[in-house]
Nucleic acid binder design. Structure first.
Lengths: 242, 242
DNA sequence: GCCATTCAGGTACGATGTACGCAAACCGAG
DNA sequence: CTCGGTTTGCGTACATCGTACCTGAATGGC
C-alpha cells in the first residue's frame, strides 16, 4: 500500500529505531528541524531552503527527503519546535487570569525569539502536539466556570487573535526591513517614513493621522504595550465570568 | 537620480498620460492588476505568476515590469483592488454599531470573493488608499464618544482581528484543500479527518475534543456564526461606551 | 524626415522544490 | 564469512520561478 496518500505529517511518524537490515539513519527530524529553525532565526524563513539546511548539515539536499516529505511539512515541524519552548504547568492553577497571561507572555516570548513563527502559523492550519498542548491548557484555564464550550473556545480564540496581531505589530516592520537588507532604523526613515508622512500631510485621513501623532501608548516599551492590550482582552473575558 | 531607492509602490504612481515623444503604453496597472486578481480568484495566489498574467494578456512576462516594479508590489495592488470593492458611505452614520457591522460584513464579503485576500494582508504590512479609506471610516465610527485615540485604535484593531481570524476559519481549510488539488469534501474526510479523529480518540486533549464534538455553533450557517462572534466583539466595545 | 525617448518582449541567469536512480552501508540468514 | 535484501546518502536532472539586460519597434517634436 503506497503512502502517497495526502496525509498530515503528524500521522507519519519518523522511522522508528528498528532492528532490521539496512543502513542506519545518519540524521533525524529533530536535528534537521533544529537546523532549519536556526537558519530562520538568523536570516528569515525565505533563507530556509532545502539546500541551505543540507549544506549546514554537510550533506546533500535530497538526503533531507528521507526524513521530511515536503518542505511545507518541515515548516510544521519548525512551528511545533518553537511551540515546544512554551513552558506551562501540567494543569491550570485555578487563577484563569494568571493562566491566560502566562500563555500570552510565553507565546510572545517564543514569537520574539523566532520572528517567523506568527507568519508561518498564519499561513498554514497546523495542529502539532505542542500547539495542541498550549491550546488545551488555555481552554482548561476557563473550564468549570459556567461557560459552555463554545464560549470557552471563542474567548481563547480572542486571546489568540490579540496575541498574534500584537506581535505582528511589534515585529512586522522589523521583519520587512530585514528582508530588504537594510537596518531597521534606516528602513523606517527612508522607506516607510516618507509615505506615512505624505499620508499625514495630505490631510485625507485625519483620524489615522491622529492615531500616529497623538498616541500615548505608541512610545511605551513594547512589553508594557503588550500588557496594556492584554489586560483589555482579559477584562472582556472577565465580564462574562461571574 | 535613479529610482532604485527602496520605496513603497504607493509613492511611485503609474506613468501619467503625457505628451512627449515615445511609444504609447499598451497596458496599465489597473488592467494588469485586474488580470492578476482574476487568476488568483480562480486558481489561487500561487498560480498568479508573472508569466501567467502576461500570457493571459497575450504579451511577454517582462512587459509587466514596465508597470509594476516587483511581484510583491503587484500583490499590494491586488489587495487594494479587493479593498476597493468595500462599499461605505462617505461618512459614518452616527450609529457606531451599524457602521462597524457594515465594515465587518463588507470585508467578509470581499474576502469570500477573493479567498487570497486575508492571506496576503497577513503577509505584508501594506497601506494602500482603499485600505486607509476603510480604516478611517472604522475609526470615524467610534470618534466623538469620549474615547481617546488609543482606545479607538485598539477597538478597531480588535474588530479587524476578529474579522480576519473568523474568515480564516471559514475558508482556511477550503484553501488548503484547493491547493492540494482535491475537492474539499474528500480532503476533509481523507486528510484532516483521520488526524483529528486520532486526536479525539487519544483522549489527551479532552477540552479540544469537546470543542469539536459538543459545539452548538459549529454547524450554524457561516454567516450566522460570523454574526455571533461579531456581536460579542461589538458588545465588548459597547461596554466601554457610555 | 530625423532623433531622442519610450515601450514590447525575447533571451538568459540564478535559485528553488523535488523526482529518480544508483552506490554504499548494514543486518540476519546460511 | 558470505551473500542478499533493505535502507540510507546524495548526485543529477527538470520544471518553474522572479527578474536583469538588451535589441528593436513605435512615437511625436523639431
Amino acid at each position: 500500500m503506497p503512502d502517497d496518500e495526502p496525509t498530515s505529517i503528524w500521522m507519519l511518524p519518523e522511522r522508528q529505531e528498528r532492528s532490521g537490515p539496512g543502513r542506519r539513519p545518519g540524521y533525524s527530524r529533530e536535528q534537521i528541524t533544529r537546523t532549519a529553525v536556526r537558519i530562520a532565526d538568523a536570516e528569515g524563513v525565505e533563507a530556509t531552503t532545502m539546500r541551505r539546511i543540507a549544506s549546514e548539515l554537510a550533506t546533500g539536499a535530497m538526503s533531507l527527503y528521507r526524513y521530511v516529505p515536503k518542505r511545507d511539512d518541515l515548516f510544521d515541524l519548525m512551528i511545533d519546535m518553537a511551540m515546544s519552548e512554551i513552558e506551562l504547568p501540567d494543569d491550570p492553577s485555578g487563577d484563569w487570569r494568571a493562566d491566560l497571561s502566562l500563555v500570552a507572555d510565553q507565546t510572545r516570548a517564543a514569537a520574539l525569539r523566532h520572528s517567523w513563527l506568527i507568519g508561518l502559523l498564519a499561513g498554514r492550519p497546523t495542529l502539532g502536539p505542542h500547539l495542541l498542548r498550549v491550546h488545551e491548557f488555555a481552554l482548561g484555564a476557563l473550564d468549570g466556570r459556567g461557560l459552555d464550550i463554545d464560549d470557552i473556545t471563542a474567548f481563547v480564540g480572542m486571546l489568540n487573535d490579540y496575541v498574534h496581531s500584537a506581535i505582528r505589530r511589534e515585529i512586522g516592520w522589523l521583519e520587512e526591513a530585514r528582508r530588504s537588507g537594510l537596518d531597521p532604523e534606516r528602513w523606517k526613515r527612508d522607506y516607510i517614513g516618507p509615505y506615512v508622512r505624505q499620508i499625514v500631510e495630505s490631510g485625507a485621513y485625519p483620524l489615522f493621522s491622529r492615531s500616529l501623532l497623538e498616541s500615548r501608548t505608541a512610545h511605551l516599551p513594547p512589553a508594557e504595550r503588550f500588557r496594556h492590550g492584554l489586560d483589555r482582552v482579559l477584562d472582556g473575558i472577565g465580564a462574562h465570568i461571574t
